[in-house]
């Protein structure tokens, strides 16, 4: 059936050829201090998107700002034909985005990258998000809950006014543990402290655990120092983890090599891989952290 394989390749190319999407902005509002959420309607995108993937948003049709902006997909609702993005005011691009009003067309590329992976069926998962890193974990939490998994989410932020997603996670039936660096809500300090206490109690065999389900894995997204700390914990407590990495990107398409990270294969050989193309999700044990 040689003939078939070329047909398949061709149709795949056609499917991917529609990566350029024109979405309709239906909502854009501040959900925490300087943090906004936008809803974009584009049914093909909503149908194709998987938790952990991202989009490259075009800010302007002109020359300024020049580059598209990468955003992790923070909500996927195929029935409504929409996705959600959560972004923090940081520079020229996000400042312009915050002024956009519903009804505006938004051009983007996506869905891009490889998302999170999980086992089907029930079980138990722990999610850890630092700062804006919580955003791509929201659709993941819902996908895991829809399989009846027990999901515990550790949320870390500098202060309470920067926290988002708690209500949504609660409604989805997740256990949420909050930590703020200034102690304004939840545990005081880095979220890795309550996370470590949890892993200490729940790692290893399910015997002796208060919960019946086996802990299947950890998923984390956030700033690099946070991911490095999480990776260290997973190593110590022998938990498999998937990390969603962040790097400055040029194209989001794998062409410019701007977002390269070092990934170690099982034989210990270090490879250069692109966050936008081979990632953004990598196995924790494969990621080489520097510094």
């Amino acid at each position: 059936m040689n003939h078939d394989s070329s047909t398949v390749n061709h149709s795949r190319q056609q499917a991917e050829g529609s990566l350029v999407k024109k979405a309709l902005l239906t909502r854009n509002q501040e959900i925490a201090k300087g943090i906004y959420e936008m809803e974009l309607v584009e049914p093909d995108l909503a149908a194709a998107a998987r938790p952990g993937q991202f989009v490259m948003l075009s800010i302007s049709k002109g020359l300024e700002p020049f580059l598209r902006r990468p955003f992790g997909i923070a909500g996927i609702e195929p029935q409504k034909g929409s996705i959600r993005l959560i972004y923090q005011l940081a520079g020229r691009g996000t400042k312009q985005m915050a002024a956009w009003e519903a009804g505006r067309p938004v051009e983007l590329l996506g869905p891009l990258g490889n998302g999170f992976a999980w086992e089907n069926g029930p079980g138990r998962a722990v999610l850890a998000g630092g700062g804006m890193g919580i955003a791509p974990l929201l659709p993941l939490a819902k996908a895991l809950r829809s399989l009846n998994k027990e999901v515990t989410v550790f949320l870390g932020a500098r202060s309470l006014d920067l926290v988002f997603g708690i209500k949504e996670l609660g409604q989805a039936g997740c256990q949420v543990q909050l930590a703020t660096e200034d102690g304004s809500a939840g545990a005081a300090g880095f979220v890795t402290l309550p996370l470590e206490a949890y892993l200490q109690k729940n790692a290893g065999s399910s015997a002796g655990n208060s919960s019946s389900a086996q802990l299947q894995g950890l998923y984390a997204c956030g700033p690099t120092p946070f991911l490095k700390a999480v990776s260290g914990l997973c190593d110590r407590y022998s938990i498999t983890a998937q990390l969603s990495l962040e790097e400055r990107m040029g194209c989001g398409l794998g062409a410019c090599m701007g977002c390269t990270v070092q990934i170690k294969d099982s034989a210990g050989k270090i490879k250069q891989q692109r966050v936008c193309y081979e990632g953004p999700v990598f196995k924790a044990e494969e990621v080489v952290f520097h510094g």
Partner: peptide, 23 residues
């Protein structure tokens, strides 16, 4: 060639800087 450490990309007015380093 492995190239340079990241960040390798910075946006600038109507353009960008790169320091990929021939990866």
């Amino acid at each position: 060639t492995a190239g340079n450490p990241t960040p390798r990309i910075a946006e600038t007015p109507a353009g960008m800087l790169n320091s990929i380093g021939l990866q």
